[in-house]
Design a protein around this nucleic acid. Structure first.
Lengths: 347, 347
DNA sequence: TTGAAAGCGCTAACAC
DNA sequence: GTGTTAGCGCTTTCAA
C-alpha cells in the first residue's frame, strides 16, 4: 500500500490535517512544523493521492482537450501538436494536467464530454476546433461548464463564449488583395471542411476582397475538400480543368498546399511562374516546400497558450466575463507568389 | 450539487450499493431492479464520479502518455499525432482515458511521472520515445509500475520491459543494400538525436550493410542533427562540402528529408538525378514532397495501437510476461532513388 | 438478491 | 497554530 497522509502525520508527530495544510502551504502553520512535516514526507517518499484530493476538493487540476473526431485524418495536421504544445506550456506553468478525448465519432465525443463534465474528471475544457452548430459546445454552454474554444462559435447569440481566434476574415481578405495587387484576377479559393468556421471566414474575406475590387466571385473558383492531402490534389484537378484556369490559388491549409503543389508539379504547371499560391497556418514544414510557400502565420502556439490561459482564469474565477482573444497573424512572403505576366490570355 | 449514487438509489427505492452493482452490471442483481435503477439513472442524468470511483477502486482507467521533452521541437513531428491516434484507438475501445505529460525538461518530466505513479493518477504509462539511459524508464522499472515503451530499451538487462518497436536495424540495412544495388557506393547517413535508440539502430544497420559489401564506412559520411528541419539543411551543407560528395543519402526522418531536399534544390542538386534519397517513417505528408520521397513505412499507427494493447493487458493481468512486439516495416518506393549514372567521377 | 456500513485518502469546518 | 471529525461519492465486505 502506498504511503498516505496518515503515515506522514505519524512520523512527523502531528495530525493528518496538519500535513494537509503543509501540502497546501497554509500560512497558519509554523515554519518549524512545516519543516518537520516536509522531512517526514521526503523520508517516506510521499506523493498525494490525486483522486482523494479531487474528491474532497472538487477540483482536479486538469483540463480536457477535445479534438475533432479522429476518424478523419484531420488530426494528422501538424497544427495539433503545436496547439497542444501551447496549451501544455500554459497548463504546466499553472500546474494543470491534460486529459485527451479519444472519441472517433461525433457521438462518441459527445458522450465523452458528458462523462468528463458530470464525472468531474476535468475542471474545464478546450475545444480544439470550431464548427457550425456544435452539439458539444451547446452542451457545455448550457451546463455553464468552464470552457474555451480555439476558433470561434458560429452562432451569433453565443458571444458569451470564451474563444481564441485569428481574424481569419481579414487574413483571407488581405491575402486576396495582395494577389490582386500582383495583377491576378482569376483567383481561386481552395477551402477545407465547409462545416468549419474558419473555412467560412476565409471564404467571406476572399469574396469581400474580390467584390471590393469589382470582381464577381466565380462559383467554379471556389472548391472545398475535407481531406487534407488528397483534397489538395483533387482541388487542383477540378480547377485546372476549367477553360479559364485560375492564375492564383488561395489554399486553406499548408498541408493541403503540399498536395496542391505536388499535383501541379505533376501537371508541369510551374509555381510561381504559371500560378501563384498562398496559404494559411505556417506550420513547421511550410518553409520546406519547394519552392518554399508564402503563407499566413497564425501563431498556432499562441492560440493554444491563450486558450489555456483564458480557461484557467475562468476556472479560478467563475465570475470572469467571457473573453475573445484575437491572435495576430502575419503574412510570410516566401516564393510561391509572383506578379502576373500577361501573355496569350484569350479574350 | 451533481447527482450522486444516493439520489439514484432514493428514486429507484434501493440501496446505494445496489446502484453501484447495477453500474458494474453485477450478475447478482435481478433484471427487474436493474431496469428500475437504469431508469432512475436516465431520469436524473446520472454520471458516476470518476474520482470517487478511482479512490474506492484503486483504478483510474486512464493511461499516461509521456512525450519527449517538448522544449525541443521534436514534438512537432507528425509522428506523434499518429502514434497517439493509434494509442487512442485502442484505449477508446477498452474505455481507457488518456493523460498527457506536459513537462518541458527531463527533470520536470521525471517529477511528473513520479506524481502520476504515486498519486495514482494513471493505471499505466506509455513512453512515446526511447533514449539511452532513461531515468524515467529506470524509475518505472524499479517501481514495477505497468508501462510500455515505443521503441526499445537500450540497456540489455532490460529485456524485461514491454516494448513495441520496428526492426530498425534491419530496415536501415535493407535500405542501404538497396542503394548499394542501385550502384551507389558513396552513401551518407543523416541521423537524428544520438541519444535516441532508433538512431543508433539505424546507424548499425547502415554500417553493417556497408561492411558486408566490403565498403569501409566513412566518418565524414555520418552526421547527426537534433533539430528536424534545420538539421536536415545543415547536414546537407556538411555533406556537400566534402571533396567526395555522396551520391546517396539515408535520412533518419521524413521531415528531415524535406529539409534536405529543400537545401539540395537551393544548391541546384537534382533529386534523384544527382543524388538519391531514402528515409524513414512515411508520415502523412511524405508522399507530397517534390519529387515524392522513397521511404520506409514503419506503421506508426500500429506502434501506438500495440503499445496501448500490451499495456492494458499488463494492467489487467499483472502476471503477464513482458512482451516485445515488432511491427513490420515496408519500403515505399517513390521517386527519390535512382540507379547511379557513372560520369566524371574523379579517382 | 439486496442492504448496512466501513473505508479509499484527502480537505475543511469547527474546536481549542 | 494545531487537532478532531465529518464528509467527498463510490465500492465492497459482511449479513440477512
Amino acid at each position: 500500500m502506498a504511503v498516505t497522509i496518515k503515515d506522514v502525520a505519524k512520523i512527523a508527530n502531528v495530525a493528518p490535517s496538519t500535513v494537509s495544510r503543509v501540502i497546501a502551504n497554509s500560512p497558519r502553520i509554523s515554519e518549524r512544523t512545516k519543516e518537520k512535516v516536509r522531512e517526514a514526507m521526503k523520508e517516506l517518499g510521499y506523493h498525494p493521492n490525486f483522486n482523494a484530493r479531487s474528491l474532497a476538493n472538487k477540483s482536479t487540476k486538469t483540463l480536457g482537450l477535445i479534438m475533432p473526431n479522429s476518424a478523419t485524418k484531420t488530426f494528422q495536421n501538424p497544427f495539433f501538436p503545436e496547439v497542444i504544445r501551447g496549451i501544455s506550456t500554459k497548463a504546466h506553468q499553472l500546474e494543470y494536467g491534460l486529459y485527451l478525448s479519444t472519441g472517433q465519432s461525433d457521438d462518441e465525443i459527445f458522450e465523452e464530454v458528458q462523462d468528463m463534465v458530470q464525472g468531474k474528471r476535468v475542471d474545464g475544457i478546450i475545444l480544439l476546433y470550431s464548427k457550425v452548430n456544435d452539439k458539444v459546445m451547446n452542451y457545455l454552454y448550457n451546463e455553464k461548464f468552464p470552457f474555451s474554444v480555439i476558433g470561434r462559435p458560429y452562432d451569433v447569440e453565443m458571444k458569451e463564449i470564451t474563444y481564441v481566434n485569428n481574424d481569419n476574415f481579414k487574413a483571407a481578405k488581405t491575402v486576396t488583395e495582395y494577389l490582386l495587387l500582383l495583377g491576378h484576377e482569376r483567383i481561386a479559393f481552395i477551402g477545407g471542411n465547409l462545416e468549419t468556421v474558419v473555412t467560412l471566414d476565409h471564404m467571406e474575406g476572399y469574396k469581400k476582397a474580390l467584390t471590393n475590387a469589382g470582381i464577381e466571385p466565380k462559383k467554379e473558383y471556389v472548391v472545398f475538400h475535407e481531406e487534407l492531402q488528397e483534397g489538395g490534389q483533387e482541388a487542383v484537378i477540378d480547377l485546372m480543368s476549367l477553360s479559364e484556369r485560375p492564375t492564383a490559388l488561395i489554399v486553406a491549409d499548408d498541408i493541403m498546399t503540399f498536395g496542391v503543389m505536388r499535383m501541379l508539379s505533376e501537371m508541369e504547371v510551374r509555381v510561381p511562374d504559371d500560378i501563384s499560391i498562398i496559404s494559411f497556418n505556417n506550420v513547421m514544414i511550410s518553409e520546406l516546400s519547394s519552392p518554399p510557400m508564402t503563407t499566413v502565420d497564425i501563431n498556432i502556439f499562441s492560440l493554444g497558450y491563450e486558450a489555456a490561459n483564458c480557461l484557467i482564469e475562468k476556472i479560478l474565477n467563475p465570475e470572469t466575463k467571457p473573453k475573445h482573444v484575437i491572435i495576430p497573424h502575419k503574412m510570410i512572403k516566401r516564393q510561391t507568389c509572383q506578379r502576373i505576366v500577361k501573355r496569350l490570355t484569350k479574350q
